[in-house]
Design a protein around this nucleic acid. Structure first.
Lengths: 339, 339
DNA sequence: CCGTAATACGGGAGCGTACCCAATCCACGT
DNA sequence: ACGTGGATTGGGTACGCTCCCGTATTACGG
């Protein structure tokens, strides 16, 4: 059972395949009556073009490669939704790849995507294939999300959160409420998201002349479990317990919240709480954390805009866009008691 | 800047392209030394096969089409993760399409996927293109998730929740706690998920001789907003207010919960609460709802298993698998007061 | 009425691969 | 030494499409 091809259309319409191609792609003048005939033939025999053949001829698959560390993370699904939306509207497809942060998987996926001649790449890089990605960016539009490359000559776009600024603002907020003894659960310093948030937070404290004891800083790995461990550690000695806990991403924040609940630590009476990032169902939680939202929808929109621009004109000069966060006030922050 | 093709490899290795093809596909006998030579040549010149040409020749793109109503819904991301996992392991890709429940979009996507010669289709159908999907299932493996087709002759697999059973069990639980005056917020009856849950719930009540007044049943649309409206309506008159509210999916349940909070209705003291489906961060909410989990990970695993089986042997007889739900006890259920 | 240019259309090559078919090679038994 | 057969290998074609190039058709001014 063979599928109809362009020859069948040509035969049915009584024209040549070249003319059919012109009608389909609408890129050369075709007589109006001829066009009608061809379109009718296409409808009559139920023809649709073969994408593989087009790709082969045109060296473009009309597919966007989307490579992320965790396909189920709501940040990435939000951005993915935006990409898919843009793509769908322009007859592109979106090929999704999940690396789980594994550089080997990432490399395999990149190779696979290249062999499929993707039109563009949107990637949350692991950090271990940066030269490869930079090389790819010489050939096709690449948009980095959240994580930058370690190497210098990258010809692509970058969209992320303003990590330094967001953490800085959180710290300012803590200070404004009189907190001086602050516990910080940060991310890993080998990620720019980890180090910049930490630095932003500490910078604000520094400006206010507040110095954090090393025992009040815990370096987690951005996963929930390390939030639990961090909270345990920082809240261990009842003696000089911090009056506020700041957590530098959402997964760890959820771990912390679940620890606080089970340990019977009341927020904000016993402890104030701040978090960087967005938390699902935030308004239904047992306390409503004050957080710095990264505005993933906004980031998604920016990615979509850049993508469109790049597809239309691959030679555009690269942009580097930091989306500012938004403070969402909850009820997790109290004035620190006077000493 | 031309990419290396199979001819380049052949030249570099001093063999014919046929031999190179045999080495790559490993489907015909090749002398061991020749194989070595070819593999070295492939590595030396950095060759990787052109997917489009392969697709064209072999009539198979090694891509799984994944069509869902909402790309960001955690059910679908969980299942998607499983598909992606399976796919990645076998050099398949996953093309994700989001319909938002729009039949027109669904149709366009299906056409696009056909033109791309996908190897299999996993779909959460809108319900308006069922004949089309049944026709597709004659050509390639199709797995339906959550929603069945309305037409009869479908040669594919189906994986879903045991909706009737799950709702039945929720109702039994309500009855066991003495509730008789129960408010039900159900889904739309034109979806099998909507009607079966409603019927399962009512069946259990019937068995116990409990008849629900029509004013105690609200038919929502499975979206959050209609949960709010339903709760408003069912809890309006303080007089004969239900002692328990059962909500038939997670999105509406979240709407209801947020309404209850703002209306100051205490759970479970003023009202007991049950929900069908999984709720994000359930253990951190202001009350912990007792729910029937649909076990999305389990469903994902089943989809993955079926997919693998179907790709290996497209002629397998179709399966229809209902994954039973799991009751997760919270603190949202109290004994009904004696009359 | 003819030449010329513009416009519309058809022929055909080539994209990179897989597989059919035929040719070659080698080893072995006679 | 030579025929025979199995193991390898090479040549060539087809997959469906786009686009270059050349030809046919039309329009129009001189």
């Amino acid at each position: 059972m063979r599928r109809n091809n362009i020859h069948d259309v040509a035969k049915a319409a009584g024209v040549s395949i070249a003319t059919v191609s012109r009608v389909i792609n609408n890129n050369y003048p075709v007589d109006e009556t001829t066009r009608e005939k061809v379109n009718r033939a296409i409808r009559d025999i139920g023809y649709y073009p073969d994408a593989a053949a087009r790709t082969m001829r045109g060296n473009n698959s009309f597919v966007i490669g989307y490579v992320v560390s965790d396909i189920a993370n709501s940040h990435f699904t939000t951005i993915g939704g935006e990409i898919e939306n843009i793509a769908g509207r322009h007859d592109y497809g979106m090929l999704v790849c999940s690396t789980n942060g594994d550089p080997k998987k990432e490399e395999n996926y990149l190779r696979m995507l290249l062999s499929r001649k993707i039109s563009a790449l949107v990637i949350n890089a692991t950090g271990a294939n940066d030269e490869f990605i930079a090389r790819i960016a010489k050939t096709l539009p690449v948009i980095l999300i959240y994580r930058q490359l370690h190497c210098s000559d990258f010809d692509g776009d970058y969209v992320g959160t303003d990590d330094f600024d967001g953490a800085y603002r959180l710290a300012k907020l803590a200070l404004a409420n009189g907190h001086r003894r602050i516990g910080l659960i940060s991310g890993p310093s080998f990620l720019n998201t980890g180090s910049e948030r930490r630095e932003g937070f500490l910078a604000a404290l520094n400006e206010a002349g507040v110095k954090l004891a090393p025992s009040l800083i815990f370096e987690g790995d951005f996963y929930s479990e390390s939030g639990v461990r961090g909270a345990e550690k920082l809240l261990a000695g009842k003696a000089r317990r911090p009056t506020l806990l700041a957590v530098m991403n959402n997964a760890m924040a959820m771990g912390v919240m679940s620890y606080l609940r089970s340990a019977g630590i009341a927020v904000p009476n016993d402890l104030s709480f701040l978090a960087f990032g967005d938390i699902h169902n935030r308004d239904l939680l047992y306390f409503q954390p004050t957080v710095l939202s990264q505005n993933p929808e906004e980031i998604g929109k920016v990615v979509g805009r850049l993508l469109l621009g790049r597809l239309a004109n691959p030679q555009r000069t690269p942009e580097r866009i930091l989306v500012p966060g938004t403070l969402l006030n909850g009820d997790s922050l109290a004035k620190a008691a006077k000493k």
